[in-house]
Amino acid sequence: MNRLRLWLLAVGGAGLAALLVAACLDLPGFGGRRHPYGDRAVQASLARHTANTISSVNFDQRAYDTLGEMSILFAAVLGCVVLLRQARDEHRDRPEPAEVARPVRRYALLVLPVALVTGLYVVAHGQLSPGGGFQGGVVAATALHLLYLGADYGALERVRPLGVYETSDAVAVCAYLVLGLASVLAGTAFLANTLLPYGTFNTLSSGGTVPLLNAAIGMEVASAVVVLLAHFLDQAVEIEEEQGS
């Protein structure tokens, strides 16, 4: 029986390999500058004064897909929250204070605001330089957890009220939707970038609704990652199983 499966795998694999090779033979040259989709995307993004074409594609030409990505992240974190909740036969201990070496703690306290400001910088300049809501949101969320790495989980819990982050996660998702509906109310399509003036090229106010959508995504990703890590940390550091069971 096993040999039959291996034969099936071999045949299937060979077929796939043949098709892949055939497909690769008429790919355009490696590293070429011309591409039908790329030219139109760059043209559309420059027309709307968005310097970073990727952000223009993410938040303007295909903003509907980003709505899907955002709801995927939201649903994934929701799933983790449900799965990692404290079960009936588990109890929660106070996280004990930990003595970390002084230079490491001082470094964590120093880099904490710097990383947060860098994350906000990456979110704010999403439509100008490489970066955007996703990357900046993750950096801002990771910055917060330097408190856990530099000191202990109790210190992080004192600074991070979890309810606030859950609501800001929901608020950010709604902000993204409201921005989309606003352009419907204004008479054009859902999430169309016709609401705001495009502003002058390569400045913070350029790109119409792209910076606003960027900020909404940044807030959503940051709070989603904080909620996700909170439940992972709770399980790893605080929640204990009853030894009796």
Partner: peptide
Amino acid sequence: LERIVGASCAAVGAILARLGRRAV
């Protein structure tokens, strides 16, 4: 506009820095 956004982000960072130091 950069200065305004920068000033507000720096304010958020300063508050977090102080909260972090006190929490530790």
